[in-house]
Design a protein around this nucleic acid. Structure first.
Lengths: 198, 198
DNA sequence: ATTGACAAACCGACGGTCGGTTTGTATTGT
DNA sequence: ACAATACAAACCGACCGTCGGTTTGTCAAT
C-alpha cells in the first residue's frame, strides 16, 4: 500500500514538513495536493509513491503529533512524580493539560480534519489513540493514588475518561475561539475543573 | 444570497429532509450534491436556487438541530425548576446533558463537518452558537443559585464554560465510539463529573 | 413584460491513476 | 577490474472521473 521506504527518508520528510507548514498556513481543507507539489518541487507521482492517499498523509502527521504530545507528557510525569514538592492535588494532570493546550495547532487541525472523514478506518485509528491515551491516564492516576496524591476512592478508569473527554472538548473550543483572550479563558476553565475535583 | 422564499417552502423542506437522511446514512463527507439531486429528483439549479452553497445547506441543518436541542432543554429546565423535588445538586444540568447525549446523530456529524471547514464565517457561526448556549447555561446556573440548589460560591460563567467544553468533548468521543457500550460509558463519565462537582 | 421556480449544459479544480522514464544497486560474464 | 545486464526504487506528468459551483435557458404565474 504505502511505506515503501523507511520513514526517515529525506524526500518523505520534505513532504511531511511541507504539508505541516501548509496546514498551519492555510488550514486542512484549503491545503491541496497542488500546494504540496509546488512547495516540495516534487511531482504528484512522487508523493503517491510514499503515500497511498492524501488522508493517509494527513493521518501520518496526526500520529506523529500525538506521539510528540505523549512524549512531552511522559517527561512532565516523570519530572513531577520524582520531584519532592507537588503543585497540589492532580498537579501532574494539570501540567499535562496545560502542555496539551499549548500544543501546536497542527494537532488540533488534523484532529478535526480526520474526525470529519466519516471513515471507519480513520475513526478506528483515532479511537485507538483515545484508548491509548486513556490507558496512560489510568496509569498515572493509579500512580498518584499509590503516592497518596490522589484519593483512592476515585475510579481511575472513569476519571481518565473524564479527562480525555474534557481534553477533546478543549481542542474544539480552542479551535472555535480565535482570539488569544478566549484561549486564556479556556485555560482558566480547566483550572476550575481541577479545583472542583481537588 | 439565499433564502429567496419562505423557509417552509415544500421544495426546500424536501431538500433539507433528503440531505439530513443522506447525512445519517452516508455521513457528511460522503454526501455529495449528486446524492441530494438523485434523492430529491430536483436539479442542481433548483438546490442552488434555495441555498448559496453546500456548506450553507449543511449549516442550516446544524442550526435547526441546535435549536431543537435548546428547545428540548428549556422544557426540561422549566419542568425541573418548577417541580418540588430535585434529582440532586446540578440535577437540571445532568438532565440537560443526558438529553444532549441522546440527541440525533445528525447534529454531531454536521458539528464536526463544519468544524473542519477552516472557514472564518462558519467558525463564527459555531462560535455564536457556543456563546448563546453558554449564556443560557449561565442563566440556569444563576437560577439554581437563587433557588439554593447550586452553591453561590461558584463562578457561573466559568462553570458554564466548563460544561460547554465537556459537552463538546462528549460529542467527539461519542462520534469516535461506535459501539453502544461505549456510549453508555460516556454517560457514566458525565455522572462522575456531576458527582465530583456536587 | 417581469419575475419566481426550476432544468440542463457547462466550468475549473480537485484527488487519484497509470504508463513511462530516470536513477541506483546488485549480479554476472569476461 | 570492469563492463554489461537485470531489476527495483524514485520520480514524472498526462489523463480521468467527480466534485462544488456558475451560467444560460425555459416556462408558467403574475
Amino acid at each position: 500500500m504505502s511505506n515503501p521506504t523507511s520513514h526517515d527518508n529525506p524526500t518523505f520528510q520534505t513532504i511531511l514538513l511541507a504539508t505541516e507548514e501548509l496546514i498551519l498556513e492555510k488550514g486542512c481543507r484549503n491545503t491541496t495536493l497542488k500546494d504540496i507539489i509546488e512547495r516540495t518541487g516534487l511531482s504528484k507521482g512522487a508523493i503517491y509513491h510514499y503515500v497511498a492517499s492524501k488522508d493517509e498523509l494527513f493521518g501520518l502527521i496526526l500520529k506523529s503529533k500525538i506521539e510528540q504530545e505523549n512524549e512531552k507528557f511522559n517527561q512532565i510525569v516523570h519530572h513531577q512524580m520524582s520531584g519532592a514538592a507537588h503543585a497540589g492535588q492532580f498537579g501532574v494532570v494539570t501540567e499535562f493539560f496545560h502542555s496539551r493546550q499549548n500544543t501546536n495547532d497542527v494537532g488540533n487541525l488534523i484532529f478535526i480534519y480526520l474526525l470529519s472523514q466519516d471513515d471507519e478506518k480513520v475513526k478506528s485509528i483515532l479511537n485507538s489513540i483515545y484508548q491509548y491515551s486513556k490507558s496512560t491516564g489510568i496509569q498515572w492516576i493509579e500512580m498518584g493514588q499509590t503516592n497518596g496524591v490522589i484519593p483512592p476512592t476515585i475510579d481511575a478508569e472513569k476519571m481518565a475518561a473524564l479527562f480525555m473527554t474534557f481534553s477533546y472538548g478543549l481542542r474544539v473550543t480552542q479551535l472555535l475561539s480565535s482570539s488569544e483572550d478566549e484561549r486564556i479563558a479556556s485555560s482558566d476553565i480547566f483550572k476550575l475543573l481541577i479545583q472542583t475535583l481537588s
